[in-house]
């Protein structure tokens, strides 16, 4: 039957197109690396690459959580403000514990525990308002974004919260050292990515996240507890923020009203550049990883060239986001 083979041909050529689209972010990253190498040989030195990847880790870890949120068809704008808030809380908790005579390791562990718990709780609050409160995720997280940002400003009394220097010198290596020259933030980012990919692609939970975003009604009629799936996604996002803060605090040892400013946009941009559909139903973890690295590399390359002003960094990132969406847009949806 010639018809079947034709249909198969058509389907497989459609799949090739889809494959190409999925490869888009990786091709873009490769092109960027080549560009960086041509522009300035320093770009490809191990020291520089480690530096770029280490800086990517905070928003990268957040963006892995963001991939789950966006795959459910939601969005979380509060992550940057939440990062600032939990940074502040972490510093206050650790500073308060130091005079108690606890060993520094214990202080940092308790601080980290606080950060993870508060992060997850904040995510749960977002999730509850969205699922039980039946409010749009955009509105809920816009609101909590303002609340968290205001809380950190209040905690810092409009200034800066600084970590006790003794704890700081103990805690510093979490950001600055690593194993075999690879810093801990990079290792954590890699681990989170691998776990994220396994959860999204290989587990029931990941499949339910995708189904919920693809069509919530279909998911509900397939006996999926859509609300629980979303709630868990927002809680996971909160955990990711906590983890990012754990990596971030030893870098500067301080938190202020400007901590994590714009992280939410960077994380969302990384997810979108990576090919995850904004409307939900299709998430790409490795796309998000390359999206995050692309954004950090642009910054780095601009710094290394000096041909284009660093002040234009955001403009270039903006162009890349728009081009990424244009390229990935389904041919069908074009008018």
């Amino acid at each position: 039957m010639p018809d079947t083979s034709h249909a198969a041909n058509r389907a497989s050529s459609a799949r090739r197109r889809a494959d190409f689209k999925a490869l888009g972010p990786f091709i873009a990253l490769a092109a960027l690396i080549v560009l960086g190498a041509v522009v300035n040989p320093v770009f490809l030195t191990p020291g520089n690459l480690i530096n770029v990847l280490t800086r990517t880790a905070f928003t990268g870890v957040i963006a892995i959580g963001g991939t789950f949120i966006i795959t459910t068809g939601g969005i979380d704008l509060s992550v940057g403000a939440l990062a600032a808030f939990v940074s502040g809380v972490m510093i206050i908790v650790m500073n308060a514990l130091t005079p108690e005579g606890l060993p520094p390791l214990m202080v940092v562990l308790l601080g980290t525990l606080t950060v993870m718990v508060i992060g997850a709780l904040a995510g749960l609050v977002n999730g509850l308002l969205i699922t039980r409160g039946r409010i749009e995720p955009f509105i809920v997280t816009l609101g909590t974004m303002g609340i968290f940002r205001s809380l950190v400003t209040y905690l810092a009394d409009g200034g800066t919260l600084s970590l006790n220097s003794q704890i700081r010198s103990f805690y510093r290596p979490v950001y600055y050292s690593g194993v075999l020259g690879i810093t801990y933030p990079i290792i954590v980012f890699a681990l989170v990515s691998v776990i994220g990919a396994i959860v999204l692609y290989r587990t029931r939970y990941g499949r339910y996240v995708t189904a919920t975003g693809a069509n919530e009604e279909v998911a509900r009629y397939s006996a999926i507890h859509v609300d629980r799936i979303k709630l868990a996604a927002y809680a996971l996002q909160g955990l990711c923020v906590g983890l990012a803060v754990f990596l971030y605090v030893p870098r500067l040892g301080s938190a202020s009203a400007t901590t994590g400013l714009g992280w939410e946009l960077e994380a969302i941009a990384a997810v979108i550049i990576g090919g995850t559909l904004m409307k939900g139903g299709s998430g790409r973890i490795w796309g998000t990883v390359s999206g995050a690295i692309i954004l950090a590399s642009i910054d780095n390359i601009l710094n290394l060239t000096g041909a284009i002003s660093v002040y234009l960094n955001s403009a270039i990132q903006g162009c890349i986001i728009i081009v990424a969406v244009l390229v990935q847009r389904d041919a069908k949806s074009r008018p």
Partner: peptide, 30 residues
Amino acid sequence: KKRGLLVDKPLTPNLTLLALGRYGKIFIDL
């Protein structure tokens, strides 16, 4: 189309969506 099937997805995830627990408690047996 609105309640029965994820029309933008392939056959397999649609077929098993209701009974996914039969393909693994946590990890799906692809």
